[in-house]
Write a protein that binds this DNA or RNA. Sequence first.
DNA 1: TAGTGGTCTAGACCACCGT
DNA 2: CGGTGGTCTAGACCACTAA
Lengths: 273, 273
Amino acid sequence: MNELSRSARGEGAAEADAGPTFAPLYRQIRALLMRGLQSGEWKPGEPIPSEVELAARYRVSQGTVRKAIDELAAANLVVRRQGRGTFVASHREVRAQFRFLRLRPDEGEAGMSGPPEGEGADEPAPGMVMISRVLECRRLRAPSEIARALALRAGEAVVLIRRVLEAEGRPTVLDEIWLPGSRFRGLSAERLDAWHGPLYAMFETEFGTRMIRATERLKAVTADRARARALQVAEGVPLLLVERVSRTYGDQPVELRRGYCVTERHHYFNELS
Amino acid sequence: MNELSRSARGEGAAEADAGPTFAPLYRQIRALLMRGLQSGEWKPGEPIPSEVELAARYRVSQGTVRKAIDELAAANLVVRRQGRGTFVASHREVRAQFRFLRLRPDEGEAGMSGPPEGEGADEPAPGMVMISRVLECRRLRAPSEIARALALRAGEAVVLIRRVLEAEGRPTVLDEIWLPGSRFRGLSAERLDAWHGPLYAMFETEFGTRMIRATERLKAVTADRARARALQVAEGVPLLLVERVSRTYGDQPVELRRGYCVTERHHYFNELS
DNA sequence: TAGTGGTCTAGACCACCGT
DNA sequence: CGGTGGTCTAGACCACTAA
């Protein structure tokens, strides 16, 4: 079956349909594995086949499979666990909880209501529990600006969620979340209220849509009347606007989110290297 | 010479001073290479020895050296160039110019005065040329807050640079930059004015201090009177405050920077994965 | 052509995990 | 114990760069 092109080594046969794309073997393996992830052959939280089995299946050495998996692990698509296996990454895991949550409480007493207990190193644990209050969840036709960001045709169905995140009982983030209607049929305020845990975990388990990458643009804005009221702050207060486009496999955009953050007691954390 | 502990394989002798630290061979190699970088044995822009030479020097296989260098390359400490060699990363290279500059012009006509010409892929080229206007550069004793961030004793000498960055002729960023005085002797407004190019390139070549990592905290604030005047905006305008601590080898903090950004025509860009 | 990094292999052994 | 990922080796060959 699986014919891989031995990057100009002429070993593997059948150069049929692939076209003139020459990638190293391990990248071809990586692509095959990614297809398996995208198609749901292996689901979040489940193990993928072992390195030796994959090596046998694709008729390559274990080292080559290993390098392919290394890259998937670096991209957080997969998690290796020594002695156990390699598992499809999931937003339900604690490790992934804070990968897309960059807002953290300023140091000091605040925000320490629920620090991850046993954790040792890894990243500085934000240890923040935010309560979500859904203001509304309704379906409408995409404004052109939203459609463009989500790669939809203008007027296609989208879901709009508006919610407030509270930290320590104080409204802290006002979110406007736009999702393509086709992927999120049946999403409603009730189901959002019923779900306990990260939103992305819900999207993953309930709608089979897993966010793997996002780009964000940040600006400083002032609170208009409506947003000021929702956040229980004075009109004109400076807010941190975080505009995010999240993408799933194939780099397809599946979420546009605008978060208006009160940065009185919190900050957006980033690391450059 | 170089005795490496063969991670519990008992091959390498002399377990003398190292203590009970067991790291894989390639990590020990990595540490040795890092020491070479830190000590200036190989300088920014220069090549480090070839993989085969390093393998011979440390008495390990080329694959082990390779894995060590892979990690250094992933951390942007070193740049691989096929057919040429492996080079110490430098802030003078174009590739590194925008690694620490996350402010980008909003799309549209603006900011296209000097796009990197030949570039093809890599990262979305911000293509922004900002002019630096130094307001002042003076030496003083560190306020306790600054001293803490720079791991100095309160009252030690520090350098304070205040400057404005202009994009398209408009003041856009007001920077307050704090540096440890001991590392930056002889730094003055005149030398800053004389230097053309990125600040970090100057720090690297003129003061032998190379920034390799930084953490940033972002908040939204309002322009007070002084900052509003410096940025030529109205008092009360929302500004994006970017507070950065940059570190050099050994994770030693060597810069505290507060940037107040006008985000009318620009945004802070970030990528999550 | 010689030297560099990049790919691929095959096999050995280690560290860790569950049973 | 058997199976998994993690480390290390030795050697072959490829792709690229410069002299």
